[in-house]
């Protein structure tokens, strides 16, 4: 058999690529904000704030303990029975965000907890409030420590975002599916799409390595990393 590739696929695939990038970027960014809040609640919510610890923990366990696909289906096909009809893109973005937030929360929690306890003590001894200490001392260190696991999560989400085609979002995967079905060129189309994903992962990995180097501070690293 001969393989046939067509330039005509490119516009659609490029559109799909843009949507994949948009979904990944938005869900990673929103997930980071939510993840940091969840992590802070899991580490610092004590005393009267203890309920937040419970809520954050339950959230993390639920979203890490169930398949992303199930979460997506529940949001898109399940919510309408409660009278909430989501646009496919919205459902996809929401599922990806809620899911990655749970994973990111764990990465951030690990990073926060690996900041030495003396850092908080020294900040409080200066007269900083707990919130200021977190803002100016703990998070700047923890966020740097979280870059390597965060990069992994980004790569994972870039590929994982492909599940949204199942609710009709025309992301890279959705467009591929459409072209393949119309032209009976499954193998070729998916090879091209695989290369697209590969290229994306490569670019993101390089960019994040660069960010890691740019933000590197002597003496600030997880054990075992230079």
């Amino acid at each position: 058999m001969t393989l046939v590739f067509r330039w005509a696929w490119l516009p659609r695939l490029t559109q799909g690529l843009a949507l994949t990038l948009e979904l990944t970027a938005l869900s990673m960014a929103l997930g980071a904000v939510l993840g940091v809040m969840l992590a802070l609640a899991r580490v610092y919510a004590k005393g009267p704030l203890l309920p937040f610890y419970g809520l954050a923990s339950a959230y993390v366990h639920f979203f890490r303990g169930t398949p992303l696909l199930v979460q997506l289906m529940a949001l898109y096909y399940g919510l309408p029975s409660l009278g909430i009809k989501l646009h496919p893109f919205t459902a996809g973005l929401l599922a990806l965000t809620l899911n990655t937030a749970a994973y990111q929360a764990e990465y951030f929690r690990g990073a926060i907890q690996s900041v030495k306890s003396g850092q908080m003590l020294a900040a409080r001894a200066l007269g900083l409030t707990r919130l200021q200490a977190i803002r100016y001392v703990i998070l700047p260190q923890a966020l740097r420590l979280a870059i390597p696991p965060w990069s992994n999560e980004l790569v994972y989400m870039l590929k994982g975002s492909a599940v949204v085609y199942l609710v009709g979002v025309l992301d890279l995967m959705g467009q591929a599916k459409t072209i393949a079905a119309r032209e009976f060129r499954n193998f070729e189309v998916y090879i091209v799409v695989a290369l697209f994903y590969l290229a994306l992962v490569f670019v993101f990995t390089v960019v994040l390595r660069w960010v890691e180097r740019r933000t590197h501070i002597p003496g600030l690293a997880l054990p075992g990393r230079a």
């Binding site: 030495k116 850092q119 020294a122 409080r124 001894a125 007269g127 001392v137 260190q141 501070i217």
Partner: peptide, 19 residues
């Protein structure tokens, strides 16, 4: 916090802010 700002504290292991 207001009081602590008036009392310096020097730790055994320095605890300088690493970043």
């Amino acid at each position: 916090n207001k009081i602590r700002a008036q009392i310096g504290f020097v730790f055994q292991d320095f605890n300088l802010f690493t970043h």
